[in-house]
């Protein structure tokens, strides 16, 4: 009797997916876009901390000042993860079910997540992105 069949998987418990010699710890990187009307930002960066690699597994956002925007992400080598800008309607704004990033993308310690974002609302907007994933620490031998 270790698992509640009525509970969602995250509540009932999920096994670790860390490779041998590593330990994963839940972590969230954030990016705030407080944009004037018509703004188009290129090559924005979310720096990855130096203490551990980051495995990016999901993304969601929340509106502080709501409005439409388009966004495009890059991996740590500058490779675009979509062929064009993606509408905010295609990204989850429900933190209980973020948009999955599968397979998880590894960002080495000290690298960065790249972001291009356009405000297409015609008004100032303010959104905060949450890059959900894990910090992957190497276990001392």
């Amino acid at each position: 009797m270790t698992s509640n069949v009525f509970a969602p998987p995250a509540m009932a418990g999920l096994n670790d997916a860390n490779p041998p010699g590593f330990v994963d710890v839940d972590f969230t990187y954030t990016f705030d876009a407080d944009m004037p009307a018509g703004a188009s930002w290129r090559d924005q960066q979310v720096p990855i901390e130096n203490d551990a690699d980051f495995v990016w597994r999901g993304v969601c956002y929340t509106d502080i000042i709501a409005g439409a925007f388009n966004v495009r992400f890059q991996d740590s080598q500058g490779y675009y993860l979509s062929s064009g800008m993606v509408s905010n309607g295609n990204i989850s704004n429900e933190p209980s079910s973020p948009t999955p990033v599968f397979p998880g993308l590894i960002f080495p310690a000290g690298s960065r997540i790249g972001i291009d974002i356009d405000n297409v609302a015609g008004i100032p907007i303010h959104v905060q992105f949450a890059f959900r994933g894990v910090k992957r620490y190497r276990v001392a031998r």
Binding site: T28, T30, T62, I64
Partner: peptide, 9 residues
């Protein structure tokens, strides 16, 4: 998290 998270997150 890297910075404080909005309540909506």
């Amino acid at each position: 998290s890297r910075r404080p998270l909005s309540a909506g997150l």
